[in-house]
Every structure is written in structure tokens, then in C-alpha cells.
Nucleic acid binder design. Structure first.
Lengths: 243, 243
DNA sequence: AGGTGTATGTCGCAT
DNA sequence: ATGCGACGTACACCT
């Protein structure tokens, strides 16, 4: 990794046009070739950057970085105050816990956390516009899980069961906003066109839901449920919600 | 700005839990207090970070950074290879051209670029779920809501020019996707509840529109119009589109 | 403080 | 390659 402190002005031309007047900044060149121009503030995002792959041409007083998409970063270097390189080596990588996938796993393992009597039919149930997180059936009707054959015929009995049973499409989010409601609405529209899964209602499950999203959801007949992640993981006793 | 090269392991606890095993990395502390942990690759994004405001407590062999939301970054420092600080000062700031606001300005100044006879009623027309880019009336006096979408993408032609010529003229496409259609649909739903603006149709204006977005838009009676940014700015003569 | 929309978003996964 | 959704998205703007 190369770290240069320099007085410079910078220009970007590509998806938009941008200009940085002359000032002192940090120029960071990583081993993969990506370049970032940092001011001494403004969070972790650089003021300008060029991701790899790119080509850096270093002339006296000017760096020109180009990428295969025709974007270009031009750094006009007025004065170099420091220029050091460090041998860092590859990174072992990042481990994460608590992302949406884990929440979905936990809820798939026990859908009654969402609604009493709920039975999981399928995770990542595919529709022609993308997979819906969970497809379940509620407590009403016979507790027969219908396997949906995407190829071939479904027998008459299953078709009738499907037509009379109530399906629930569940979308799981950590923090749900309006876009989550939109996403679920799109899926519902599709699922309700399929005679096998019609009629189907939707539920939005999240660790928190934005108030406006609740309004939009309820206006579309979509129920919102909040769950506690620690509680789901068994790190905490279920809260005794009385109301 | 303080730049530390160190062998360290890092842990984040907050919105999720994450862990970085022991390795050599760059620790960047900016004047505003934000901290970033960079590997020598993987684009400009740090592997972990803590934005300002926060408090950094530096103990021997351990940095603990906390923010007011209760999130915590713990850097266990095994060995410091370099530790330098630079006085950089405030930055004069970044100037951008070609963002959505500019496209909106140009179209507001002359809505006939979108549709013949179109008259602007109001920019950023407020609804109870957010502002609509442009509210117009068509030649027949009916209301039209316009959603302007920009999403950067450099087109193929400039890519080829960039590859073959020394001088690079960049043409920028601004592409609308399904989310733009959803956004406009939401606004339309609201506006068509208001007797003053009903009936109202929608138009999606962008320098380009994704095929799926066109399909979804047309299925909802939303017309898609593409415009040329350079043409709007007057940098190019209107193309004589014959069809 | 909280919600909404923009971003050169970036990134990863599936088609 | 492209579409699509997640992200500790960050960030500005507005209420």
C-alpha cells in the first residue's frame, strides 16, 4: 500500500464530472491498483476514487488513472509532502454474523415466532421476478404442506387444497422501509397470479419497521411483525408482551 | 490525519457482529475522529470503520472506539509498524456536475423536451409521502407527474473512444430501473387520491431506462422518455430522430 | 431525531 | 454481462 500526502487538485470524468480545488490530501494506492483521494474528514468515503481494474500513469506533477469503462481520474500534484509504501500482504478476510440470512434461517426453523400455527412450506420460494424469503401456510385449513412441482402436473386434490388454503408470503428484513413493502407487493402480485398459490397474503417481518412503511403496508393488507434477534437466537427469554 | 500500519485483529459489535483475524492493516484516523481499518485491496471501502462522532480510547495494545448508538469497534494491536500524523487542514470541498438535480433543472426550464406542449406547474411538488420531481400539465390541461432518474453508467461508445483515442470525450447515460417505476407509482397513487390533481398520469424520464423497467412501467400506463444530457445542456444539436 | 431519496454508491449472487 | 437485492450502506435534506 502506497500512502502519499500531497497538495493537489483532482478531476473526475465519467459517470459525472467532479472537481477538487488545490489542497492537501491523502492519496492511497492499494495493492489491487485502486486509488482513493481522502480529505481529513468526511467519514470513510474518499472524495474521489477509482476502483480496480485500472491503469495508473504517473507523469511529473500529474497522475492519470483510467478504467476500462472510460472513466478517468486526474490528480494534478503540486507538492509531495510524504510518499511511503508498506508491504501488507493479503488479508484473511472478514467474518460477519447477524445479517438478514441468519434472521431468515432462524425464522425458517420456527415460523411460529412470526404467527401462531404458521408452517413453513419453502424458503426462497421462486417467483418469476425473484425469490420470496419464506412461503408458509397458516393455522386454518388442513395441515398439508403442498409441494409445488415446477415441472409437470399437479394433481387435482393439491390444486383444490391450494385454492382453498391460505398462503402467506413472508419477507424478512432487519430494518424495513418502504422499499421492503414494495418488494413484497411485487412478489404478492406474482404469487396471486399463480392459481397454485392463490390466494396469498403477505407479512413483513423485521427487527424494526419504519412508521411510513407500516402505513403503506397496512393500506395494502400487509401485516408487519417485529422480532427480536437476540430472542430468536435464544440469547434472551421471550418478552412477556401483554396487551 | 493519523496513519498507522499495524498487525492487528479487529472486532465490531453493533448493527451486526464482525471479526477480522490478525493481519497487517492500515488504521486511518481523520481529524473529525472517524476511524477506518483498510486492507491492501478490496476497493476504497474499509473493512471496518466508525464514523464520527465517537470516542477513541487508546490503551496499550488496544483501541476501543465507541459511538453514541452503542456500537463499538475494538482494535487489538499486536505490533505497530508505522505511526505518522499529518497536518492537512480543512478541504475546500467538492464540486459536481451531472447529478440528478442538474437534469431536473434543465428539464424544469423546458419541459417540452419531455413532451410537446408540457407546462411546468411545480418542481419538487410535495405529497404526503415525499416530493415529486416535476408536476406538469399536458397540452390538454391534464396533470402529469414526472419522475427523473439518474443512475450512472458510461455508454459503450465512450468506452470504445476511451480505448482508441488519446482524447476522451465521455458520454454519460443515466439509467432508470424498476425502483424508479415503483417510486413513481407510489406518487401517482397518492396524487390520484387528491381531487385537485386527479386524474394524473406519470412519465419516467431518464437518459436510459432498463428493459424490465420499461415493461413494468408500460404495464402500469407509465410512459418512458429518454433524453440526452449533452443535448439538454446545449452542447449538442438535437438529434434528428426520424421514426 | 427520524424518514425519504440520492449515490461515480459498492458488493455478491444468480441467471 | 446483467439484473437484483443487501449493506453496519453513507449522506444530505426536510419535517
Amino acid at each position: 500500500m502506497r500512502l502519499v500526502i500531497a497538495r493537489c487538485s483532482v478531476d473526475y470524468e465519467g459517470r459525472l464530472t467532479a472537481h477538487l480545488p488545490l489542497a492537501t490530501r491523502l492519496l492511497m494506492v492499494k495493492a489491487d491498483g485502486c486509488v482513493a483521494v481522502h480529505a481529513d474528514g468526511g467519514a470513510y468515503k474518499p472524495q474521489m476514487w477509482m476502483t480496480a481494474p485500472n491503469t495508473l500513469r504517473e507523469e511529473p506533477g500529474r497522475w492519470v488513472i483510467r478504467n476500462p469503462n472510460g472513466e478517468q481520474l486526474t490528480i494534478t500534484v503540486d507538492e509531495v509532502l510524504s510518499d511511503v509504501s508498506h508491504d501488507i500482504g493479503v488479508d484473511p478476510g472478514l467474518a460477519k454474523d447477524g445479517v438478514e440470512a441468519h434472521l431468515q434461517e432462524l425464522l425458517a426453523a420456527d415460523p411460529t415466532r412470526i404467527l401462531d400455527g404458521l408452517v413453513l412450506v419453502r424458503r426462497e420460494h421462486p417467483t418469476d421476478i425473484g425469490p420470496v424469503d419464506l412461503l408458509c401456510r397458516d393455522a386454518d385449513g388442513r395441515a398439508v404442506v403442498i409441494e409445488i412441482e415446477r415441472r409437470g402436473e399437479v394433481d387435482r386434490a393439491s390444486r383444490e387444497r391450494a385454492a382453498t388454503s391460505r398462503w402467506v408470503a413472508i419477507e424478512v428484513k432487519r430494518k424495513a422501509g418502504i422499499d421492503a413493502v414494495e418488494q413484497l407487493s411485487r412478489y404478492l402480485e406474482r404469487i396471486n397470479r399463480d392459481p397454485l398459490t392463490r390466494p396469498c397474503r403477505g407479512m413483513l417481518v423485521a427487527t424494526s419497521v419504519a412508521p411510513q412503511a407500516v402505513v403503506l403496508a397496512e393500506s395494502r393488507g400487509i401485516a408487519c411483525v417485529t422480532v427480536d434477534y437476540d430472542e430468536l437466537r435464544g440469547l434472551r427469554e421471550p418478552s412477556l408482551t401483554l396487551f
